[in-house]
Amino acid sequence: MVHEHPGVSPLRRLGNVRALDEKQFVLDAMLSGWSDQQASRALSWQTIASRAQVVRRFGEFTGRYPWEWSPGDLEDFTTQAKSRPHPAARSTIRGYHTIIRLFCDYLTDARYEWATECEERFGSTPQQICHEWNTATHLLDYEGRAERRALTYDELEQFFTAVDERVETIVHRGRKGALSALRDAQIFKTIYAYGLRRAEATGLDVADLRPNGAAPRFGRFGAVDVRWGKGSHGSGPRRRSVLTLPELGWITDGLAQWIDAARPRFTDSASGPLWPTERGSRVSPRYIDLRFAAIRDQLEWPAELSVHALRHTYVTNLIEWGYAEKFVQDQVGHAYASTTAIYTSVGDDYKNRMIAKALSRVYGGPDDTTQ
């Protein structure tokens, strides 16, 4: 394999080895070289590996090698992705196109000499198969499903009531699992109270909870250090500190109960994962998805709603409570303000209050503050 000689360029390795399957060997060398190029740009290995997987999947679909690909192959691949029983989302297809375009850019760049190598070996050269007429463009800020939204205040209360009742039901029936149910309830409340993503929540350690000198009333839970924030362009995790807010100060009582009384029954260690399993490992994002889906189905909510709705709700609520957009952006770890705006779907009560203030300001009345 080409990866057995670190520090040696793929082209030099090709010249030193006679492969039984020459085409596959060259493809592996191409992917190895592309991996080196991306690693030199300090992209994360997870990003590099996922991109290589897409390229291999595309190659398997076409049944041909990169120096044999044509624009029609990309169009057939896209049509197939959109025709599946569960069609790929527009954003997913755009991601496929971007990855294949980047790979073709690498292969057709004269500085890497792949065109010369392929011409000598196979009599054909790689080409750029992605162009403006056969790729999806980024026309909208948000390309997800319209059904995915923030929860209303009533829905949020229903959800937390349901997760708390699950704990009480298990205890009342004398069944095992009450501690796990308590843990799950606290995880969901923490996700909402700090606007976390799934991976951010499951990646928390006890040491990530810390005081905030500007808000001593919250004690040791004044802030949460998020170490596994979503990066951009393959940059790796982006760290941030999320402050505990007065409107959500109730979260500190639940965290104290969990850490002081419940968590020690899962593990003897005072440090390590904030949410351990019965076996001492870390709760996974997939587990969080399954638990949320179970509660969602119990409440007969739309299947499109996911645990990410709690993060949407957090952003929406902060805007409704009057927090500045820049503050909200920093709290949730968005690189751009436009991303925060996508998550915002203020409720009718908030909008009604705003229109009432506007009417009073223009026409005068009890809420008029300009007089």
Rank of each mutant, 00 (worst) to 15 (best):
G7E: 00
G7H: 00
L11A: 05
A19W: 12
D21Y: 06
K23G: 09
F25Y: 14
F25W: 13
F25D: 15
L27R: 04
A29Q: 05
S32T: 07
S32Q: 15
G33E: 06
G33W: 09
D36V: 07
A42V: 12
I48V: 07
A49K: 03
R51S: 05
Q53W: 10
F58P: 10
F61P: 12
E68I: 05
W69F: 15
W69M: 10
G72Y: 12
G72E: 14
G72M: 12
L74Q: 03
L74A: 11
E75L: 13
E75Y: 14
T78L: 03
T78H: 06
A81M: 15
S83N: 08
A89Y: 04
S91M: 05
R94S: 09
T98L: 11
I100D: 00
R101S: 13
L102R: 08
F103M: 01
F103S: 00
C104R: 00
Y112H: 10
Y112E: 06
E113D: 13
E117N: 07
E117H: 14
G123A: 04
S124M: 05
E132D: 15
T135C: 12
D141W: 11
Y142R: 09
R145G: 12
E147P: 03
R148Q: 08
R149N: 03
L151K: 11
E155W: 12
E157R: 07
E165M: 11
H172K: 09
R173L: 13
G174H: 02
A178R: 07
L179R: 15
A181C: 03
Q186R: 08
K189Y: 00
T190H: 03
T190P: 02
I191L: 08
I191P: 00
Y192H: 01
G195R: 02
T202E: 03
N212D: 15
A215S: 00
D225M: 08
R227A: 02
W228V: 05
K230H: 07
G234D: 09
S235F: 13
L243F: 03
P246V: 09
P246S: 12
L255A: 07
Q257D: 14
T267C: 05
L274S: 11
W275A: 06
P276M: 02
T277K: 01
R282H: 07
R282D: 09
I288D: 10
A293F: 11
I295C: 14
I295R: 13
W301M: 01
S306T: 15
V307N: 04
H308Q: 06
Y314A: 05
V315E: 04
T316H: 11
T316F: 12
L318D: 01
Y323K: 09
Y323H: 15
A324K: 11
E325T: 14
K326S: 13
F327P: 04
V328W: 10
G333K: 04
A335H: 04
Y336K: 04
Y336G: 00
T340A: 07
Y343H: 00
G347S: 09
G347F: 08
D348F: 05
D348R: 04
N352Q: 10
K357M: 12
V362K: 15
V362P: 02
G365S: 02
D367Y: 04
D368Y: 06
T369F: 06
T369E: 15
